[in-house]
Design a protein around this nucleic acid. Structure first.
Lengths: 205, 205
DNA sequence: ACTTTTGTTAACCATTTGGTTAAATCGTAT
DNA sequence: ATACGATTTAACCAAATGGTTAACAAAAGT
C-alpha cells in the first residue's frame, strides 16, 4: 500500500504537460486530449490522477500563483531601505519570471475570468500580498523629505508595471521591435538594473 | 432590394453582444449561444449575419486592434518635442482605454495565442506601429545632452508599461488594494499627468 | 503462489457546441 | 393582392469534448 510514493514520472509528466497546455491555451482553450498527448499517455489516465479538468487546472494555477505572489510579499515586507527594496524587487522578480515568462499573463488572465474564485482560493491563506507596509514606507520617505512628493500608489503601480508588463506583452514587443528570443532576454536582464535606476532618478531629490 | 441598408439594430446588437462576450471570455471561451442570447436573437441568425465564429471574432478583434494601435502610431509619429509627446501619449491613450478597459488584455491575449495571424491580419496594412521615429527622437535628445543617457528601448517599454499595465491587471489591483470602480477611474485619471511627470523627472538632467 | 492494490488502456457515453436546413414571417415593389 | 427577396426561427446534425467503464497489466503484500 504505497499510497504516498506515487509514480513520480507519470504524475510529473502530467503536471508538466498540463502546465504547458494550460499556460499557453488558458483554461477554456485547453483540451484534455492535448494534455494527454503532450504527456504521452491515455486520456483516461488523466482522470485517474486528477479527477477532472477543473481539479487539474486548480493544481496548475495554484502552483503558478504560489510562484508569483509570495515573492512580492517577502520583498515588500522586508526591512530594507526603500531604494534597496526597489532594487531587490526588480532583480529577484525578473529572475523568477524569466524562467516562466508566460506565467504572469496566464495568472492575470484567469484572475480576470473570475476574480472572486481567485480571492478565495489563492489569497485566503498566506500568499495574499500586503502592500501596506511598502506604501507606508514610501509615505514616510516623502514626509522625511528624502524623496519627492509622490502618491505611493502610483509609485507602486509604476514599479510593478515596468517589471511585469514586458513579459505580459512579450510577443507584441518581439514582433513589433523585431526582437529575437535572446535579445529579449538581454533586455530583461538589463531591466533588472535599468528600472531601479529609472525609478530612483525619478523620485530622488 | 435593400442589400446595403442592412438592419442596423440587429447587426449592431450582434456586434455589441459579440464584443461583450469575446472580450470577457476570449475566443476559446466564448460560446455562440451566449452571444445569441446576449443579443436577444436566435443562434441561426448569428450565422446568417456572420458565417461562422471565426469570421465574427475577426470583426471584433480587428475593431479592437484598430482602436488601440493606430492611436499609438499617430502620437509616436507626430512632430512634437519629446516631453510633449510623452504627455500626449499618456493623456490620449489612457482616455481611449478608459472607455474600454478590457481591450488591452483581450488583444494581448489573442496576440499571444497566435502571433503570426496577428502580424498578417492586423499589421499588414496601415496600423503597424512604427516606433523607430520615437526611438530615434530619444536617441537624438540623448546625443544633444538634453536628457540623461538611456537606452531608448527601455524608455519606450517604461512608458507603455506604466500606461497600459494597470488596465491589464485591473482586477488584480482592485482586489489587492481594495479599490472600487470609481477609485480606479480617479487613479487612472491622475496617471495621465503622473506618468509623464514621473518619466520626465527620471530622464531630465 | 495467489490475492490485492495500483497503473494503464481501448471503447464507450452524454453533453456541449459550431453549424445547417427548411419553413415561416416581414417588408416592399409591382 | 401578390410576388419576391430579406429576415428570423425551430428543429436538426455532426464533430468535439469531458468524463466513465470494464478489462487488463504490473507491482506489492500475504
Amino acid at each position: 500500500m504505497v499510497k504516498n510514493k506515487k509514480d513520480q514520472t507519470t504524475e510529473q509528466a502530467i503536471l508538466d504537460a498540463a502546465k504547458k497546455v494550460f499556460v499557453s491555451k488558458g483554461m477554456a482553450g485547453a483540451r484534455m486530449q492535448d494534455i494527454a498527448d503532450e504527456a504521452g499517455i491515455n486520456k483516461a489516465l488523466l482522470h485517474y490522477y486528477f479527477r477532472n479538468k477543473e481539479k487539474l487546472f486548480e493544481v496548475i494555477f495554484m502552483e503558478a500563483a504560489e510562484k508569483l505572489f509570495p515573492r512580492i510579499n517577502k520583498i515588500f515586507d522586508s526591512d530594507q531601505p526603500l531604494f534597496e527594496k526597489i532594487e531587490s524587487f526588480c532583480e529577484e522578480y525578473i529572475a523568477v519570471v524569466m524562467e516562466n515568462p508566460y506565467l504572469p499573463l496566464f495568472v492575470i488572465n484567469e484572475i480576470n475570468q473570475d476574480p472572486e474564485y481567485f480571492l478565495k482560493k489563492v489569497w485566503s491563506g498566506r500568499s495574499k500580498p500586503n502592500p501596506a507596509k511598502f506604501l507606508e514606507q514610501i509615505e514616510r520617505e516623502v514626509k522625511k523629505g528624502n524623496i519627492k512628493r509622490i502618491n505611493p500608489l502610483h509609485l507602486l503601480m509604476n514599479l510593478i508595471s515596468m517589471t511585469i508588463f514586458p513579459f505580459v506583452a512579450k510577443p507584441m514587443f518581439q514582433k513589433n521591435l523585431g526582437m529575437s528570443e535572446s535579445q529579449f532576454r538581454v533586455i530583461m536582464e538589463q531591466r533588472k538594473r535599468e528600472i531601479p535606476k529609472f525609478i530612483i532618478d525619478a523620485i530622488k531629490k
